[in-house]
Amino acid sequence: MARKVSKGSAGGKRRGAARSAARGNGSRASLYDEVTQTIVTQLEDGVFPWVRPWSKAKASPGLPCNAVTKRAYSGINVLVLWGAVIEGGYPSQDWLTFRQALAAGGCVRKGERGRTVFYADRFTPKDEREQVESGEDARSIPFLKRFTVFNAAQCDGLPEGLVSQPAPLPERELHRAAEDLITATGADFRIGGAQAYYSPSGDFVMVPPQPAFHHQIDYYRTALHELGHWTGHGSRLARDQTGRFGSAPYAREELVAELASAFLCAALGIEPTVRHADYLGSWLAVLRADNRAIFRAASQASKSAEFLLQCQSIEQEQAA
Protein backbone atom coordinates (compact mmCIF):
# COMPACT_ATOMS: atom_id res chain seq x y z
CA MET A 1 0.00 0.00 0.00
CA ALA A 2 1.34 3.42 -0.88
CA ARG A 3 2.24 5.62 2.05
CA LYS A 4 -0.12 8.60 2.42
CA VAL A 5 1.64 11.93 2.66
CA SER A 6 -0.08 14.50 4.84
CA LYS A 7 -1.10 17.79 3.29
CA GLY A 8 0.87 19.63 5.92
CA SER A 9 4.27 18.20 5.02
CA ALA A 10 3.75 18.19 1.25
CA GLY A 11 2.12 21.57 1.25
CA GLY A 12 4.90 22.97 3.43
CA LYS A 13 7.59 21.75 1.02
CA ARG A 14 5.75 23.20 -1.96
CA ARG A 15 5.19 26.53 -0.22
CA GLY A 16 8.86 26.54 0.75
CA ALA A 17 9.79 26.09 -2.91
CA ALA A 18 7.55 28.98 -3.82
CA ARG A 19 9.20 31.19 -1.20
CA SER A 20 12.64 30.17 -2.45
CA ALA A 21 11.65 31.19 -5.97
CA ALA A 22 10.45 34.52 -4.62
CA ARG A 23 13.87 35.15 -3.10
CA GLY A 24 15.46 35.05 -6.55
CA ASN A 25 16.67 38.05 -8.48
CA GLY A 26 13.16 39.41 -8.90
CA SER A 27 13.08 38.60 -12.61
CA ARG A 28 9.86 37.78 -14.40
CA ALA A 29 11.03 34.16 -14.66
CA SER A 30 11.26 33.76 -10.87
CA LEU A 31 7.92 35.52 -10.52
CA TYR A 32 6.36 33.00 -12.91
CA ASP A 33 7.89 30.12 -10.92
CA GLU A 34 6.37 31.46 -7.72
CA VAL A 35 2.91 31.86 -9.22
CA THR A 36 3.04 28.42 -10.84
CA GLN A 37 4.03 26.77 -7.56
CA THR A 38 1.19 28.54 -5.76
CA ILE A 39 -1.34 27.36 -8.33
CA VAL A 40 -0.03 23.78 -8.24
CA THR A 41 -0.33 23.83 -4.44
CA GLN A 42 -3.92 25.08 -4.61
CA LEU A 43 -4.86 22.45 -7.17
CA GLU A 44 -3.31 19.61 -5.19
CA ASP A 45 -4.99 20.75 -1.99
CA GLY A 46 -8.49 20.57 -3.49
CA VAL A 47 -10.71 21.20 -6.48
CA PHE A 48 -12.86 24.32 -6.39
CA PRO A 49 -15.68 25.28 -8.77
CA TRP A 50 -15.16 28.31 -10.94
CA VAL A 51 -17.71 31.05 -10.44
CA ARG A 52 -18.22 33.80 -13.01
CA PRO A 53 -16.92 37.05 -11.50
CA TRP A 54 -19.61 39.07 -13.24
CA SER A 55 -23.37 39.25 -12.96
CA LYS A 56 -25.76 38.72 -15.88
CA ALA A 57 -28.26 41.20 -14.47
CA LYS A 58 -26.41 43.44 -12.09
CA ALA A 59 -28.60 46.11 -10.50
CA SER A 60 -26.66 49.28 -9.88
CA PRO A 61 -26.85 53.03 -10.57
CA GLY A 62 -26.87 54.10 -14.17
CA LEU A 63 -29.09 51.42 -15.70
CA PRO A 64 -30.07 51.96 -19.35
CA CYS A 65 -33.71 52.84 -19.94
CA ASN A 66 -36.16 53.53 -22.76
CA ALA A 67 -36.28 57.26 -23.45
CA VAL A 68 -40.03 57.21 -24.16
CA THR A 69 -41.45 54.76 -21.60
CA LYS A 70 -38.71 55.44 -19.01
CA ARG A 71 -38.70 51.71 -18.29
CA ALA A 72 -35.29 50.40 -17.23
CA TYR A 73 -33.81 47.54 -19.21
CA SER A 74 -32.85 44.37 -17.35
CA GLY A 75 -30.99 41.08 -17.73
CA ILE A 76 -28.71 40.64 -20.71
CA ASN A 77 -29.97 43.94 -22.14
CA VAL A 78 -28.12 45.84 -19.40
CA LEU A 79 -24.79 44.36 -20.44
CA VAL A 80 -25.47 44.75 -24.17
CA LEU A 81 -26.36 48.43 -23.78
CA TRP A 82 -23.60 49.16 -21.28
CA GLY A 83 -21.12 47.80 -23.80
CA ALA A 84 -22.64 50.02 -26.49
CA VAL A 85 -22.33 53.10 -24.24
CA ILE A 86 -18.65 52.33 -23.66
CA GLU A 87 -17.99 51.69 -27.36
CA GLY A 88 -19.88 54.74 -28.59
CA GLY A 89 -18.87 57.09 -25.78
CA TYR A 90 -22.50 58.16 -25.38
CA PRO A 91 -23.29 60.72 -22.65
CA SER A 92 -26.51 59.06 -21.50
CA GLN A 93 -28.21 55.69 -21.34
CA ASP A 94 -31.49 56.64 -23.01
CA TRP A 95 -32.50 54.30 -25.84
CA LEU A 96 -35.42 54.18 -28.28
CA THR A 97 -36.54 52.36 -31.40
CA PHE A 98 -36.50 53.86 -34.89
CA ARG A 99 -40.28 54.30 -34.77
CA GLN A 100 -40.20 55.84 -31.32
CA ALA A 101 -37.70 58.43 -32.56
CA LEU A 102 -39.99 59.32 -35.48
CA ALA A 103 -43.10 59.44 -33.28
CA ALA A 104 -41.30 61.79 -30.91
CA GLY A 105 -40.57 64.18 -33.78
CA GLY A 106 -36.95 63.23 -34.36
CA CYS A 107 -35.06 60.65 -36.37
CA VAL A 108 -32.12 58.28 -36.24
CA ARG A 109 -29.16 59.69 -38.15
CA LYS A 110 -28.35 57.95 -41.41
CA GLY A 111 -25.65 55.30 -41.07
CA GLU A 112 -26.09 54.78 -37.32
CA ARG A 113 -25.99 51.18 -36.11
CA GLY A 114 -28.60 50.02 -33.60
CA ARG A 115 -28.37 47.37 -30.87
CA THR A 116 -30.60 44.35 -30.47
CA VAL A 117 -32.38 43.99 -27.14
CA PHE A 118 -34.69 41.21 -26.01
CA TYR A 119 -38.05 41.22 -24.29
CA ALA A 120 -39.55 38.08 -22.78
CA ASP A 121 -43.28 37.60 -23.30
CA ARG A 122 -45.87 34.86 -23.35
CA PHE A 123 -48.39 33.94 -26.05
CA THR A 124 -51.74 32.25 -25.42
CA PRO A 125 -53.09 30.36 -28.47
CA LYS A 126 -56.68 31.03 -29.58
CA ASP A 127 -58.04 27.68 -28.38
CA GLU A 128 -56.42 28.27 -24.99
CA ARG A 129 -58.04 31.72 -24.75
CA GLU A 130 -61.39 30.04 -25.30
CA GLN A 131 -60.64 27.79 -22.34
CA VAL A 132 -60.00 30.87 -20.20
CA GLU A 133 -63.39 32.26 -21.17
CA SER A 134 -65.00 28.98 -20.09
CA GLY A 135 -63.18 29.09 -16.77
CA GLU A 136 -60.55 26.47 -17.54
CA ASP A 137 -56.80 26.79 -17.04
CA ALA A 138 -55.00 27.93 -20.17
CA ARG A 139 -51.49 27.17 -21.43
CA SER A 140 -49.28 30.07 -22.50
CA ILE A 141 -46.12 29.78 -24.60
CA PRO A 142 -43.03 31.83 -23.67
CA PHE A 143 -41.10 33.56 -26.44
CA LEU A 144 -38.58 36.34 -26.99
CA LYS A 145 -39.24 39.52 -28.90
CA ARG A 146 -36.32 41.32 -30.51
CA PHE A 147 -36.05 45.07 -30.90
CA THR A 148 -33.38 47.27 -32.40
CA VAL A 149 -32.75 50.36 -30.30
CA PHE A 150 -30.60 53.45 -30.78
CA ASN A 151 -29.01 55.70 -28.21
CA ALA A 152 -30.46 59.19 -27.96
CA ALA A 153 -27.03 60.49 -29.02
CA GLN A 154 -27.56 58.72 -32.38
CA CYS A 155 -30.70 60.74 -33.05
CA ASP A 156 -31.47 64.27 -34.23
CA GLY A 157 -34.49 66.45 -33.53
CA LEU A 158 -35.67 64.78 -30.34
CA PRO A 159 -37.84 67.14 -28.27
CA GLU A 160 -36.32 68.87 -25.29
CA GLY A 161 -36.99 67.04 -22.06
CA LEU A 162 -37.36 63.60 -23.65
CA VAL A 163 -33.81 62.61 -22.84
CA SER A 164 -32.90 62.56 -19.17
CA GLN A 165 -29.83 64.19 -17.74
CA PRO A 166 -26.61 62.38 -18.58
CA ALA A 167 -26.52 59.07 -16.71
CA PRO A 168 -23.01 57.69 -17.04
CA LEU A 169 -22.08 54.15 -16.18
CA PRO A 170 -20.99 53.39 -12.63
CA GLU A 171 -17.46 54.74 -12.35
CA ARG A 172 -14.83 52.29 -13.57
CA GLU A 173 -11.99 51.31 -11.27
CA LEU A 174 -9.22 51.77 -13.81
CA HIS A 175 -5.86 50.05 -13.57
CA ARG A 176 -3.67 52.20 -15.77
CA ALA A 177 -0.92 49.65 -16.46
CA ALA A 178 -3.47 47.02 -17.50
CA GLU A 179 -5.36 49.52 -19.66
CA ASP A 180 -2.10 50.52 -21.35
CA LEU A 181 -1.23 46.87 -22.02
CA ILE A 182 -4.65 46.14 -23.55
CA THR A 183 -4.28 49.17 -25.83
CA ALA A 184 -0.68 48.35 -26.74
CA THR A 185 -1.58 44.87 -28.02
CA GLY A 186 -3.63 46.34 -30.85
CA ALA A 187 -6.07 43.45 -30.37
CA ASP A 188 -9.66 43.71 -31.57
CA PHE A 189 -10.92 44.09 -28.00
CA ARG A 190 -14.71 44.34 -27.66
CA ILE A 191 -16.77 45.16 -24.58
CA GLY A 192 -20.35 43.99 -24.07
CA GLY A 193 -22.64 41.03 -23.50
CA ALA A 194 -22.60 38.47 -20.70
CA GLN A 195 -19.78 36.21 -21.89
CA ALA A 196 -16.01 36.48 -21.97
CA TYR A 197 -14.29 34.67 -24.82
CA TYR A 198 -11.72 34.81 -27.59
CA SER A 199 -12.87 33.96 -31.13
CA PRO A 200 -10.03 32.24 -33.05
CA SER A 201 -11.97 32.49 -36.32
CA GLY A 202 -12.77 36.18 -35.89
CA ASP A 203 -9.53 36.94 -34.01
CA PHE A 204 -11.24 39.18 -31.46
CA VAL A 205 -11.70 39.30 -27.69
CA MET A 206 -15.06 39.93 -26.02
CA VAL A 207 -15.53 40.71 -22.31
CA PRO A 208 -18.49 41.97 -20.26
CA PRO A 209 -18.45 45.67 -19.27
CA GLN A 210 -16.29 46.32 -16.22
CA PRO A 211 -19.13 47.70 -14.03
CA ALA A 212 -20.89 44.32 -14.40
CA PHE A 213 -18.17 42.54 -12.38
CA HIS A 214 -18.85 41.86 -8.70
CA HIS A 215 -15.34 43.19 -8.03
CA GLN A 216 -14.18 45.43 -10.84
CA ILE A 217 -10.53 44.39 -10.53
CA ASP A 218 -11.57 40.95 -11.80
CA TYR A 219 -12.37 42.56 -15.16
CA TYR A 220 -8.63 42.75 -15.79
CA ARG A 221 -7.99 39.13 -14.80
CA THR A 222 -10.65 38.10 -17.30
CA ALA A 223 -9.38 40.47 -20.00
CA LEU A 224 -5.83 39.18 -19.60
CA HIS A 225 -7.06 35.58 -19.75
CA GLU A 226 -8.75 36.22 -23.09
CA LEU A 227 -5.70 38.09 -24.39
CA GLY A 228 -3.71 35.02 -23.38
CA HIS A 229 -5.86 33.06 -25.84
CA TRP A 230 -5.35 35.87 -28.40
CA THR A 231 -1.58 35.29 -28.36
CA GLY A 232 -2.15 31.71 -29.54
CA HIS A 233 -3.47 32.79 -32.96
CA GLY A 234 -1.60 31.40 -35.97
CA SER A 235 -0.17 34.84 -36.76
CA ARG A 236 1.33 35.13 -33.28
CA LEU A 237 2.45 32.17 -31.12
CA ALA A 238 0.51 29.59 -33.18
CA ARG A 239 -0.82 27.26 -30.48
CA ASP A 240 -3.36 24.50 -31.10
CA GLN A 241 -6.75 26.14 -30.50
CA THR A 242 -8.87 23.54 -32.30
CA GLY A 243 -9.96 21.55 -29.22
CA ARG A 244 -13.64 21.17 -28.39
CA PHE A 245 -15.02 21.90 -24.93
CA GLY A 246 -14.06 19.13 -22.50
CA SER A 247 -11.25 17.76 -24.66
CA ALA A 248 -7.61 17.56 -23.57
CA PRO A 249 -6.44 20.16 -26.16
CA TYR A 250 -9.16 22.54 -24.94
CA ALA A 251 -8.10 22.04 -21.32
CA ARG A 252 -4.45 22.65 -22.17
CA GLU A 253 -5.27 25.91 -23.94
CA GLU A 254 -7.35 27.03 -20.95
CA LEU A 255 -4.42 26.30 -18.66
CA VAL A 256 -2.12 28.39 -20.83
CA ALA A 257 -4.51 31.35 -20.89
CA GLU A 258 -5.21 31.27 -17.15
CA LEU A 259 -1.57 30.91 -16.19
CA ALA A 260 -0.69 33.76 -18.56
CA SER A 261 -3.33 35.84 -16.79
CA ALA A 262 -1.85 34.91 -13.41
CA PHE A 263 1.64 35.87 -14.57
CA LEU A 264 0.45 39.16 -16.01
CA CYS A 265 -1.58 40.02 -12.90
CA ALA A 266 1.54 39.46 -10.81
CA ALA A 267 3.73 41.49 -13.18
CA LEU A 268 1.25 44.40 -13.27
CA GLY A 269 0.47 44.37 -9.55
CA ILE A 270 -3.15 43.22 -9.94
CA GLU A 271 -4.68 41.21 -7.10
CA PRO A 272 -7.90 39.55 -8.31
CA THR A 273 -10.54 38.52 -5.78
CA VAL A 274 -11.25 35.33 -7.76
CA ARG A 275 -8.61 32.66 -7.09
CA HIS A 276 -6.93 31.36 -10.21
CA ALA A 277 -7.18 27.80 -8.88
CA ASP A 278 -10.96 28.10 -8.84
CA TYR A 279 -10.85 28.33 -12.63
CA LEU A 280 -8.17 25.72 -13.12
CA GLY A 281 -9.94 23.21 -10.90
CA SER A 282 -12.61 22.82 -13.58
CA TRP A 283 -10.05 21.23 -15.87
CA LEU A 284 -8.06 19.21 -13.32
CA ALA A 285 -9.93 15.96 -14.05
CA VAL A 286 -8.94 16.19 -17.72
CA LEU A 287 -5.28 16.88 -16.90
CA ARG A 288 -4.75 14.21 -14.25
CA ALA A 289 -3.65 11.82 -16.97
CA ASP A 290 -0.58 13.98 -17.65
CA ASN A 291 1.30 15.15 -14.58
CA ARG A 292 3.56 17.40 -16.69
CA ALA A 293 0.74 19.23 -18.48
CA ILE A 294 0.66 22.18 -16.12
CA PHE A 295 4.40 22.68 -16.46
CA ARG A 296 4.25 22.65 -20.26
CA ALA A 297 1.32 25.03 -20.02
CA ALA A 298 3.35 27.27 -17.72
CA SER A 299 6.13 27.42 -20.30
CA GLN A 300 3.70 28.40 -23.04
CA ALA A 301 2.00 30.85 -20.67
CA SER A 302 5.36 32.52 -20.00
CA LYS A 303 5.81 33.04 -23.73
CA SER A 304 2.27 34.39 -23.94
CA ALA A 305 2.80 36.82 -21.06
CA GLU A 306 6.14 37.97 -22.48
CA PHE A 307 4.53 38.51 -25.87
CA LEU A 308 1.89 40.81 -24.33
CA LEU A 309 4.37 42.64 -22.09
CA GLN A 310 6.64 43.15 -25.10
CA CYS A 311 3.76 44.87 -26.91
CA GLN A 312 3.59 47.34 -24.04
CA SER A 313 7.36 47.84 -23.98
CA ILE A 314 7.48 48.60 -27.71
CA GLU A 315 4.72 51.17 -27.42
CA GLN A 316 6.44 52.84 -24.46
CA GLU A 317 9.73 53.01 -26.40
CA GLN A 318 7.97 54.55 -29.38
CA ALA A 319 6.26 57.12 -27.17
CA ALA A 320 9.54 58.09 -25.47
Rank of each mutant, 00 (worst) to 15 (best):
R176Q: 15
L259P: 01
G46C: 10
S261A: 15
T231W: 02
P200G: 01
K56Y: 11
V35I: 11
G269P: 08
A57Q: 10
I141L: 13
S302K: 05
E258P: 02
G46E: 06
L264Q: 11
G12M: 13
L255I: 04
I86K: 10
P61E: 05
D240G: 08
V256F: 00
M1I: 12
A212T: 08
P209I: 01
K7M: 11
E171K: 13
P91E: 01
F150G: 12
E87I: 06
G269S: 05
G228L: 00
P170V: 00
G135M: 04
A223L: 03
F143D: 07
F213D: 01
T222P: 01
S164G: 15
I270R: 02
A212Y: 07
K303W: 00
D127H: 07
V51G: 00
V256M: 02
S164A: 15
L63F: 02
Q318K: 15
L158Y: 03
G243I: 11
Q316P: 00
V163K: 02
Y197E: 01
Y32W: 06
T69V: 09
A267F: 08
S247P: 08
I217P: 11
A29I: 12
S92N: 14
Y279Q: 00
D180P: 11
V108R: 01
W50Y: 08
E130R: 15
Q316L: 12
I39K: 09
D240M: 10
P170T: 06
D218W: 03
L144G: 08
A18N: 04
N66E: 03
K56E: 14
D203P: 07
L79Q: 14
Q318M: 15
A21W: 07
P49I: 00
P159E: 11
